[in-house]
Each structure stands twice: as C-alpha cells, then as structure tokens.
Design a protein around this nucleic acid. Sequence first.
DNA 1: ATGTGACTTGTAGTCCGTA
DNA 2: GTACGGACTACAAGTCACA
Lengths: 81, 81
Amino acid sequence: MARISAGLDKDGALVNLGVAIRARRKALHLSQEALSDAAEIDRSHMGKIERGERNVTFLNIVKIASALGCKASELLVDSNL
Amino acid sequence: MARISAGLDKDGALVNLGVAIRARRKALHLSQEALSDAAEIDRSHMGKIERGERNVTFLNIVKIASALGCKASELLVDSNL
DNA sequence: ATGTGACTTGTAGTCCGTA
DNA sequence: GTACGGACTACAAGTCACA
C-alpha cells in the first residue's frame, strides 16, 4: 500500500514525475542504485519515488535532476506539469 | 533565522523558487493571504516558502502553481532550475 | 498585509531486512 | 537489480500568537 492516497495525488502528479525520472534514468543506462548514489538519496526511497509512492521535497527533485544531468524544470515538462 | 541552512540550499534553489512564486503572485495582484487560501496552504507557511526558508514538497509546488494559474514547470523555469 | 518564533503532527527519508 | 516491508529519525506540514 502506497503512502500517498489517490485523493492527495489527484492528477497522478507524483506518478508522472516518477515515470519521467525512470525514463531519464533508463535512457542513461543507470541502475536505481547508481542514480540514488549520485543523488545522495537512499535507494529504497528512490524506488518509491519512481513508483509515485512518496511526495519528494523540492531540494531532492533538484538533486535527482542534477544526477540525471538535466534541469528540474525538464523533468516536470516530461511529466506534463 | 531561516530553517534551511545555506549548506543545504547550495544554489539558492529554494530562494529562487520563492522569488518566482512571489513575482507571479504580484503580477496577479494577489496577497499572500489570497494565494495561500487558493492553494489551501497556511499563510504563514506560504510566507516562509516565498522567502526560501522552507524546503517545500512537490505536491505543494503543484498546488501553488495551480493557484497561480500556471504549470509547476513554468515556476521552475522562472527560477532557472 | 507580512514576518517570525514556538509548537505538534504527519510524513519524508534512512537503514535494515526479505523475496 | 528491483519491489516491498518494518522500525526507526529528521524534518516538512500545518497551526497560532504576536510583532
């Protein structure tokens, strides 16, 4: 059971963000482990983020984007937000 | 004293985000109160976000962007992120 | 109208496992 | 290499009083 209720994440914003992160990660042929290591975020947490089960903080979005070699805004554009 | 250390917010990302939010809010001639009301976020909390003193979460960024009538990605583009 | 400090509650984020 | 769980700790969310 995810910790984010469908009610809170009305437009699936977190899921879309997670999908965008995963897509960029795969494009770079990185493992979750490699990415979470580069972003200095726990691998378990990163997995939940990709699945849209966690409401990431802004600073971590920036860190992840940076680890993916792109801007945070690009991730959101991918997510249609 | 701000709750976010300069060390954590290396590039002033939170400050830039706050500035972008405030700029858009002013452009719409809204008070913090009106905006925080529209975004369903407490005025006090919103004020701290605008000053870059809080590491806001993704879902709240989306809520604020929505209350500002723009996309979350646009806010980040304004912030150069 | 906004800034700020003090506070409680919820959850982001860590660390350990198992499959 | 990834999903998922339990048990923590750190900190964002949310509220209020007062400047």
